[in-house]
Design a protein around this nucleic acid. Structure first.
Lengths: 257, 257
DNA sequence: CGCCGACTTGACACCAATCAAGATAAGTGG
DNA sequence: CCACTTATCTTGATTGGTGTCAAGTCGGCG
């Protein structure tokens, strides 16, 4: 866990067909380059990396752990915009300020480097800049995926999407035992899904009653049927059978009918 | 309306405190530079600029009109991710493909240029690339703003946000008469807000009954109370009085109590 | 053992999706 | 210009989904 964050070819909340690719990686030379002017920051659970409105002088990379990016709405409600896992970039300044807050969900190590030096480096090395651009574009795609989720899916489907996203991160998913270890509590989860914590709990109960998952503890979930979760996620928002082909429902019927 | 799109200092769906700034503009020299290798594309209402999954060889700028960026969910439901107005960039390739569809909402003129040439230019001119980066970051912020809207607001609030966003674009808002001319029909609006068209209509009815707007036609809205719309937008998702300070409710009470 | 926080479940009211039907506007052809 | 068709928009009725308050359960920790 020392040295420049290894930017792994894995993806949280990527589409299945669009995993994080080489386009998002930095070359070894570039890593060295950046490493020289960056500093390590070790966070423990709950630490605030920066708060929205703060003067923004650094850009950040995650090396280990999970960082939650959130923003407070005018009514005081918090919305978690994203969870960032190792390899992710966050904290781009906007007009010299951070527009979001960043806190450590669990113990985390991040690298940060002065934004003005980063800019300088990018001017000197267009290829590096292009890589950074690709990374921002990738995050942009993630945000669009969340718009799809929040705009079209009900609570259960959002939860299914969340679980499937996290199941793609080896750090949290033990594929052999099919055990998913969530690094977030119900409040964070609810603020991420855009629901109340009670609704999140109910969604868990529902997925369990449908035989898709099993709750070991509130933070440890056994994934019983990935295909079923995907089917749920892709299904209609409301349970009426119109709008979805018959053959799309049958595999689920086979397993639990 | 000829020549390179004038990138105006206006903003659709920007936060009030973060209007589109000089950071998003290209210098005259850069405009010339890009103009040389770009081609004009005139679209009429309903024209498809590109469809999701298409091979992506061009990047696009809006010169006039409105383009809707949409994606089809697995269940067949369409989600409109954004409306792009003059000055906006869209259609960045992802792994050589477009991930979204782009169609003309009304007659529109767009400029497009080959992505590989754009890349080449950016490598040669880091400043240009940095400007493009800022533009993508800006779009990223817009996407985050939509996550906030979709995650936290009910249908009426979303509609209020939509109206307020469009009211900031001079092309659609006659400030003297307080008339807002929507370029989209109820279906597009519903797919943008993540609701059913009926819900969108009901939301209009509700805002009207609260004296915030008045429907002239289905596409022409008179804005009666901008402050009231903002207040609604910032209020709690559900009408229970808990969680919001008393003084925040009183101005609304004064007007319609 | 008792406390405390996180989580879960129940009850209820409200919101919103859906289906259905009516109303309005926009084309279209005579 | 008018009747007709069509698309779009609106409203009503119904049902499922979800936020909210309240109470209960579970697990950790002193």
């Amino acid at each position: 866990m020392d040295g420049w964050p290894e930017i792994r070819a894995r993806s949280f909340e990527g589409t299945a067909d669009q995993p994080r690719t080489i386009a998002n990686l930095l070359s070894r030379k570039e890593q060295e380059q950046i490493r020289r002017i960056s500093s390590v920051l070790d966070c423990s659970r709950g630490d605030i990396v920066f708060a929205e409105g703060d003067e923004a002088r650094f850009v950040h990379f995650v090396d280990g752990g999970v960082i939650r990016i959130s923003r407070c709405a005018d009514n005081g409600q918090r919305q978690i915009l994203a969870f960032r896992v190792p390899g992710d970039l966050f904290g781009l300044p906007d007009a010299g300020r951070y527009v979001n807050s960043a806190e450590a969900v669990c113990a985390a190590r991040i690298y940060r480097l002065a934004w003005h030096r980063m800019q300088q480096m990018m001017r000197e090395d267009p290829q590096l800049q292009l890589n950074l651009l690709m990374k921002v574009v990738y995050d942009f795609r993630q945000a669009q995926a969340r718009i799809m989720t929040l705009g079209q899916q009900n609570t259960c489907q959002r939860l299914a999407s969340f679980l499937l996203d996290f199941a793609r991160v080896p750090e949290f998913f033990d594929e052999k035992r099919a055990l998913l270890n969530l690094p977030v509590n119900r409040f964070d989860l609810a603020d991420y899904l855009g629901t109340a914590p009670e609704s999140a709990a109910r969604a868990f109960a529902r997925l369990e009653s449908q035989g898709l998952i099993r709750r070991i503890t509130s933070r440890t979930i056994e994934i019983l049927d990935i295909a079923g979760l995907q089917l749920l996620q892709r299904g209609p928002r409301r349970g009426h059978s119109g709008g979805i082909a018959e053959e799309k429902r049958s595999p689920l019927q086979e397993q639990f009918g």
